[in-house]
Computed example of a mutant assay.
Amino acid sequence: MSDHEDYIQAFSHFMRSGDNSRLSDFLTSEQSAVFLSIYRNGFYKACLSALKANFTSLTFILDETDFNQIATAYINLYPPSQATLVAYGMASSSTHAELEKIPSFPVFLLQLEGQEPPISIPWRALYDLALLDQTWISTLNKKNTQIVSLAQVQSMLEQGDDLSLIPFNLIESVSLVNTEFAAFSKWQRLKFHGEGIDAAHREEQNILFWQYEGEVQAKLLTSAEAHFYHAFLASASIGDALESAAQQGADLDISALFADLLNASLLKLEV
């Protein structure tokens, strides 16, 4: 068992550093050490491919050399800890303590603040773009249940039900992203059209993500809408969210908001 653990540590060191000296006791010839480089090259290629797939917008705003340099630094510090690379670099929803210690790739970009960015866009703006990429993928992979339809609500009204007493909640795929820079439209152009951007300006934005009929939807919110959704996600109560928005003096048309929630299939019934 000790030999096996020593080999795993030596092999891990080789994969991350390229130094095969610790593997000499486990190899039968120099040729074997050269052969192992194939595994190391494949390891980095697979990790880079996963990060490029998960953070598409960054591959359009950064040239390949810059992206690979940043991504390789992340791989060296935080190599994959799971058998699959599908979610590599993304924030973990696991409660496993070790996984929670591993920063996501967007958070890693924030850790680089203080260094000169590779382009004339701040690390924080790159973080915002990567965060939107991450949210898009996580939203796509979520499953919604008990979605409320307009017909159901009409039936409730016909039966005289008080809608304020109905246990409405937001569907499972809903998430709210706050960005420090005006990143939403830039992210859309990068991710879906491959168009470059040449500037970034500070402007806080709140973007709502959700899944509708198997496709990811995203909407830039007004400040009033953002306050409502923040409160709704925190309280899991549409009544509490509306009350909180009203106390803040948020300029919300409640009827129009409720119609928007139904039309976008954003509500579910708690059972």
Rank of each mutant, 00 (worst) to 15 (best):
S2E: 13
D3V: 11
H4I: 13
Q9G: 00
Q9C: 05
D19W: 10
R22P: 01
S24A: 15
T28E: 12
A33Q: 12
V34E: 12
I38E: 07
Y39F: 12
R40T: 04
G42Y: 00
F43D: 05
A46R: 15
C47Y: 03
C47V: 07
L48R: 11
A50I: 08
S57M: 03
L58H: 05
I61M: 07
D63V: 07
D63P: 05
E64T: 14
D66H: 15
F67H: 05
Q69I: 07
I70Q: 05
A71E: 05
A71G: 05
I75L: 10
N76R: 11
N76K: 14
L77C: 09
L77K: 14
L77E: 14
L77Y: 03
Y78S: 03
P79Y: 09
P79G: 06
P79W: 06
A83V: 05
T84N: 13
A87Y: 12
A87Q: 12
G89Y: 10
G89A: 09
T95F: 05
T95C: 01
A97F: 10
P103F: 09
P103G: 07
P103M: 09
F105T: 08
V107C: 02
V107L: 13
F108D: 08
F108P: 03
Q111A: 11
Q111Y: 04
G114K: 13
Q115I: 01
P117K: 05
S120G: 00
I121T: 06
P122F: 11
R124F: 02
D133I: 05
W136G: 01
L140S: 13
L140A: 14
I147F: 01
S149M: 02
S149R: 00
L150E: 14
V153D: 05
Q154N: 15
D162G: 03
L165C: 07
L170K: 08
I171G: 03
V174R: 04
N178W: 02
E180G: 03
F181A: 01
A183R: 06
A183H: 09
F184C: 01
W187K: 02
L190A: 02
K191W: 02
F192D: 00
F192E: 01
F192N: 04
F192Y: 15
H193N: 03
G194Q: 04
A199F: 13
E203C: 06
E204I: 14
F209M: 11
W210I: 04
V216K: 12
V216A: 13
A218V: 04
L220G: 05
L221C: 07
T222F: 08
S223D: 15
A226D: 09
F228R: 04
Y229R: 06
F232P: 07
I238E: 12
E243R: 09
A245R: 00
A245G: 13
Q247M: 12
G249M: 11
D253Q: 12
A256S: 14
A256D: 10
L267E: 06
